[in-house]
Design a protein around this nucleic acid. Structure first.
Length: 875
RNA sequence: GGGCUGUUAGCUCAGCUGGUUUAGAGCAUCACGUCGACAACGUGGGGGUCGUUGGUUCGAAUCCGACACAGCCCACCA
């Protein structure tokens, strides 16, 4: 006895263990073509959010489909050490739980704690991936701090350094004062902020102590005044022409600085005078370089004012801003204040306001790498989906990319393999020993390794290569077989961070793209269109969702709402729809299983009828299978799922099963049983990549298959017969139309009727008469040449069905309905006639289009005649 | 400031190179239904002048222009 509803919890664990047991997800190179996917590695100590859920589900669908289509499917799982994010979490944990600050620990001690943390929490995402049913190869789990991976990163660093593509130098970089590290340009997020613009008087230096000459500048950041080393105006600005050659006194610190002239300054903005702070603004920095200005760095690592500021030393920058404003107000040097809309850079990880700052860091030269990555895509060697939207973004970024700041002032990550001797000479090599050997350094010379680690993305850009040990063991079997990978599925938010850089690394180290296709999924938002985030609390917990609805339903729920590349509004109700779908399939299984005990010995006498149903569904299945195949090619997975959903729910359950279903306690035609279980199995196969658990369970309950659905290979495509499909459509159309006529006249399903059809081609109903009678509870189905008074008339195509019944009929309601239909068809006829009456249409349109219009006209006229006849039959 | 998307039923979306019966689906809604697979269900219905506005064309949801609104990306105007 089957349970009332499908119970996912019992089934999911069983099948996942079984698949693992059989090693279906493990892949070794063999004679089959490979289908390779590398997972975008989630943060090792994170949890999967709905964005991951979408990406992992899409990948699993593609991988499972490939595995069932003759490919050697390999999906590599793993996680990312996420340098800055993880280090921040570990630091926080240490302070909170153990009362230890990072400063109290040695580097080694800290790393110990970090690895401990990773071991404790690193398993969560893997557990979630399993629960979701992802068919990843667990023998290939890779972590970006694994020993070989660490080595690969170091090796690549040294190699790029030796090629002159990595350099060290003082540049203006983005500084995160909270994490106390440099960031790359991509790690800064700009947001619009309501700021305030202060107009400040700067005195003009003069021999005459009594003189009250000054120049007014506008600034949003008064706390940087102490770092000013010039004031700049436009050379064409006549207001300031007379001040040429004079000096300006910086308020608060009373430093005398030059007044300089540069086209850069916009005379129309503010007062047309700009304070120049080369240490804390990129524009000012460039201006400083050009005019050889002094640089006064007034900030410490943590965003407090440094000794160089002279005043408010040690105060936080925002605190200092208030104090500076107070002081300037007190001395009457603020002449005006106004609100000002501005943009500020925030650290992507810590959300701290980023400070532009001059700092000595390591950089990767991007020009050459970017050019290669650009060609790989513009030449069509890598295809981006959906292309239109992302190709332009990708190109623009690569054409304008600046050098990549890769050093981070952190401990959690790959430590930069550079050593310095006491004189400050620099040696780059994979190990200290090699550095000594290469540079012939005397043994007693002390070398000190660079304290910094590398940007996380400097390791993840090697992901598709080093998961197969392609850097540390070049040319091995795996890398040769699995690389380039087939498709990369990821969020569009990391197109620059990761996708573009993987292409660079692939071109540089494999001389080959890392993947054939890139599929960008959209951003998952909540029902109100808000981004899902922890702080809003609108991101559902994946395990709770799975617990509530089952993994298949969650996969269904996220996929059904996800058109390629578009953001999707996720709502639990779509998981509910998935759960209902599970139950629908389960109930169909219950029906078919109930037939098992009553399979007849002989074909039923009316097998010609069921034959039609079977043939129709056979061809319907073929047609939809081909459609779905095409959708896979175009990565239209949401549409493919919808199509399969409708095939199962509507075509199979609502139509086919109703047509072939035997009467109560009647024997089941053996051919019907055989075909139905076969169709059911094929349907489960078609659906399996999307909903693996329920389909595997049902497939096994249908019979005792020799293979598991998980690895059952799709049969070659077969053509669908359009004529048979059309007859099925006619059948559906008539059934719906007559049911509608019955319903409108309050006939109950159990009220038997007689049917008469007024048609010019009675032949088209041959073969479907019996199904029609059964479905419509009609004792007779006859043909007629004229209208039949005293019946319910229903227009179906150009034929009219007359429903004869004992019941009292409401002729007024029928008349109303017919008049409404007449109005519609007359309106339609008028529009067609207007078209055909247009000479230019008849002349210019393609003949077949005109022919269609003529057919429309004839049909409409016939329908109107039929309706008019029915109308007169009513009176 | 530059660029890229989108705007079709209450909601989420299809509708590809203009003509396939005066716009389709799912969800929601309404009516009827407990009929021996299924109320987490069945049958049926209602619901849109395709953002606005010009243009191209015999013909536009579909192509072009402008505008409005929404979203995203990029940019060094204090």
């Amino acid at each position: 006895m089957l349970s009332r509803n499908f119970e996912p919890q019992q089934v999911e664990e069983k099948w996942y263990a079984h698949w693992m047991d059989r090693g279906y997800f493990s892949s070794r190179p063999d004679a089959r073509p490979p289908f390779t996917v590398v997972i975008p590695p989630p943060n090792v100590t994170g949890v999967l959010h709905m964005g991951h859920t979408l990406n992992e589900t899409v990948q699993d669908v593609l991988v499972r489909k490939a595995r069932m289509s003759g490919f050697n499917a390999c999906w590599v799982p793993g996680s990312d050490h996420a340098s800055i994010a993880t280090e921040a979490k570990v630091v926080q944990m240490l302070e909170k739980e153990k009362g230890i600050t990072k400063e109290q620990l040695t580097r080694d001690e800290f790393m110990g704690h970090a690895f401990e943390w990773k071991d404790k929490y690193g398993g969560i995402i893997y557990h979630q991936i399993k629960k979701l049913g992802c068919s990843v190869d667990w023998d290939r789990v890779t972590f970006t701090m694994d020993e070989h991976y660490y080595d690969a990163v170091i090796r690549v660093f040294v190699d790029l350094y030796n090629k002159g593509m990595i350099y060290r130098g003082a540049r203006m970089i983005n500084w995160d004062p909270q994490a106390k590290t440099a960031l790359s340009d991509e790690e800064v997020e700009y947001r619009d902020i309501q700021g305030r613009l202060y107009y400040v008087k700067y005195r003009i230096s003069s021999e005459d102590a009594e003189a009250d000459e000054y120049i007014v500048i506008a600034t949003q950041r008064p706390e940087t005044i102490m770092g000013d080393t010039a004031v700049c105006v436009n050379p064409s600005d006549e207001r300031y022409a007379h001040l040429r050659g004079r000096k300006v006194i910086i308020p608060l610190v009373n430093r005398e600085v030059p007044l300089i002239f540069d086209e850069y300054v916009d005379p129309a903005f503010g007062t047309g005078a700009l304070k120049v702070t080369p240490a804390h603004d990129i524009n000012d920095y460039n201006l400083g370089l050009k005019h050889q200005l002094a640089i006064v760095d007034t900030l410490n690592d943590d965003g407090t004012l440094s000794e160089a500021a002279e005043v408010f030393v040690g105060l936080d920058r925002f605190e200092a801003r208030k104090k500076v404003i107070d002081a300037l107000r007190a001395s009457g040097q603020i002449v005006k204040e106004e609100d000002y809309q501005t943009r500020l850079g925030f650290s992507q990880r810590t959300n701290a306001v980023v400070e532009p700052r001059i700092s000595t860091q390591w950089f990767v030269r991007m020009r050459e790498l970017a050019d290669k990555a650009l060609t790989a895509v513009t030449s069509g060697r890598i295809r981006i989906h959906p292309e239109e939207r992302f190709l332009a973004t990708y190109k623009y970024w690569l054409e304008n990319v600046k050098d990549w700041c890769i050093s981070r002032q952190l401990w959690w990550g790959q430590r930069i393999p550079a050593w310095y001797d006491e004189k400050g000479n620099l040696y780059v090599a994979e190990t200290e020993q090699e550095a000594r050997k290469a540079a012939v350094i005397e043994n007693n010379t002390r070398l000190v390794q660079d304290e910094d680690v590398l940007d996380t993305w400097f390791s993840s850009w090697l992901w598709p290569i080093e998961v197969f040990h392609g850097i540390t063991n070049p040319g091995n079997q795996d890398i040769k077989y699995y690389y380039p990978t087939s498709v990369l599925v990821t969020g569009q938010d990391i197109i620059f961070f990761w996708v573009a850089r993987m292409i660079m690394a692939g071109e540089e180290y494999m001389n080959e793209k890392p993947f054939h296709d890139v599929y960008f999924t959209g951003m998952v938002r909540d029902r109100q269109g808000r981004k899902m985030s922890k702080s809003l609390g609108n991101s559902p917990d994946l395990l709770e969702l799975i617990d509530k609805f089952g993994a298949d339903a969650v996969r269904f729920g996220i996929l059904i709402a996800a058109p390629a590349g578009n953001d999707l509004l996720f709502d639990e109700s779509s998981c509910e729809q998935g759960r209902n779908f599970n139950n629908k399939i389960w109930n169909a299984l219950k029906l078919v299983k109930s037939w098992e005990s009553r399979i007849g010995d002989k074909p039923a006498s009316d097998d010609a009828e069921t034959h039609m149903a079977i043939e129709w569904f056979r061809h319907r299945l073929r047609r939809v299978t081909a459609d779905v195949e095409e959708m896979y090619v175009q990565f239209r997975l949401s549409e493919a799922l919808k199509t399969i959903y409708s095939l199962i729910w509507d075509d199979f359950c609502s139509w086919y099963l109703e047509w072939v279903k035997p009467g109560f306690e009647q024997p089941v035609d053996p051919s019907v049983y055989r075909h139905t279980t076969q169709f059911f199995g094929d349907l489960m196969q078609l659906l399996h990549p999307f909903m693996p658990f329920v389909t595997e369970e049902i497939y096994h309950r249908l019979g005792e298959p020799k293979d598991d659905l998980c690895v059952r290979q799709f049969a070659p495509a077969q053509p669908a017969d359009a004529g048979i499909l059309q007859q099925g459509e006619l059948l559906k159309q008539v059934i719906s139309a007559v049911r509608d006529g019955r319903a409108r006249n309050n006939l109950r399903p159990k009220d038997a009727v007689s049917l008469l059809v007024q048609t010019k081609q009675p032949g088209k109903y041959t073969g479907i008469e019996k199904i029609l009678r059964k479905q419509l509870n009609a004792d007779v189905l006859d043909f007629t040449h004229e209208s039949v008074p005293g019946t319910i008339s229903v227009l179906c195509g150009t034929d009219t069905f007359y429903i004869r019944t004992e019941q009292q009929l409401d002729t007024a309601a029928q008349r109303e309905q017919i008049l409404k239909d007449l109005e519609y068809h007359r309106g339609f006829l008028a529009s067609v006639e207007k078209k055909l009456g247009n000479e230019r249409f008849v002349q210019n349109a393609r003949p077949e289009v005109v022919e269609v219009e003529r057919k429309k006209k004839a049909d409409a006229e016939q329908k109107i005649r039929a309706l008019e006849e029915s109308l007169s039959g009513l009176s």
